[in-house]
Amino acid sequence: MKRFAGETPIGRKRRARKMARLLADTHPDAHCELDFTTPLELAVATILSAQTTDVRVNQVTPVLFRKYRSAADYASADRAEMEAVLRPTGFFRAKTNSLISLGQELLASHGGELPGKLDELVKLPGIGRKTANVILGNAFGVPGITVDTHFRRLTNRFGWVREDDPVKIESLVADLIEKRDWTMLSHRVIFHGRRVCHARKPACGACTLAAACPSFGTGPTEAAPAAKLLKGPRARELAVAAGVDPELVPAAAVLASPDADES
């Protein structure tokens, strides 16, 4: 973090908010990439997203959501039938247990409805703080910060935090960014992590945040090699936003799925 050595707390806050604005400009398409129509569907999809991709979850949930429409449906589900549906998501036995238990607990304690409060959500089977914030922000409109692997990696790279504990990261970032922006910030950081700031080799030379990022240089800083690292359908637009020739972005990068979670 030599680039911003000696930065004051107010300086960090100003830089963080500037970076948040740049992220908003860079990823106007940022959104929750799990398909859902109700809070319960989002809770189920988020539980299923553990150790797999959103794309894979979205391939499975149409069948699941047609068969299981309510808490009662999950509570009374035939275990073998549900496991067969969930098998492609991995860890399907544990996920089946979570969904059946979730349905039973919702019936027993919440009248079959998913609660809209953090302290109640985190007590439910399969729902931790990260999942609860996803549900609150995207299904109930309650601002929440979702600290997934991308958010943890990027906020440390950005020099916003020096912390690995998700709860502490959530608290520290909440002090930097205005509450109304928490949910969308989470989406934008995750989009950036999947499309630009990759775990092993970030596209530093094709990043709109380069001038404000203390970790600039972690990946290639030259435009040509950096542009090849951009991913997703807007890869060439991302290059343009960073002042890089979009022709440097190969066709394969545009077609590449940005959804592969990196550790």
Rank of each mutant, 00 (worst) to 15 (best):
A75R: 10
L107H: 13
K231P: 01
L107Y: 07
K179R: 13
G232L: 03
T149E: 15
I47D: 07
G112S: 08
P258M: 07
L106N: 13
P143E: 03
F216I: 11
F216E: 13
D245T: 02
L99R: 02
L99E: 04
T37D: 14
R188D: 13
Q59K: 15
G112H: 05
G11L: 05
R236K: 11
V254F: 03
A211M: 12
P214H: 11
G116I: 09
D25I: 06
A223Q: 05
D259R: 12
R79G: 02
A223L: 00
R56T: 15
R152T: 11
V249T: 01
D259T: 08
N58H: 02
A206Q: 11
A43R: 01
S257Y: 05
P143G: 09
C207W: 14
H150W: 13
L34P: 00
K67G: 08
V85G: 13
R15Y: 13
A211T: 11
S76I: 13
D181Q: 15
E81G: 09
Y74I: 08
L48M: 09
S49C: 12
V147R: 08
A20M: 10
R14C: 14
E120D: 15
T146Q: 15
L248M: 03
A227S: 03
T61A: 12
L118R: 14
I145Q: 01
P220G: 08
D78Y: 07
D181E: 14
N97R: 10
A226F: 04
A132N: 07
A75M: 11
A80H: 10
I127K: 07
L136C: 03
T89D: 07
K168F: 06
E237D: 13
G232E: 02
V189P: 09
K67P: 02
A210K: 12
R162M: 11
R69P: 00
T183N: 00
L172A: 10
A50H: 09
R195A: 01
S70Q: 05
V254L: 07
D54T: 08
N58D: 02
P28I: 06
H187I: 03
P62Y: 02
A256C: 09
C32E: 05
L154R: 06
I10S: 15
D119H: 15
Q59Y: 03
V244D: 00
C207D: 11
D164E: 14
P250I: 04
A212N: 12
D165Y: 03
D175S: 15
A24V: 15
T8Q: 02
H187D: 03
E237N: 06
V122I: 10
Y74T: 05
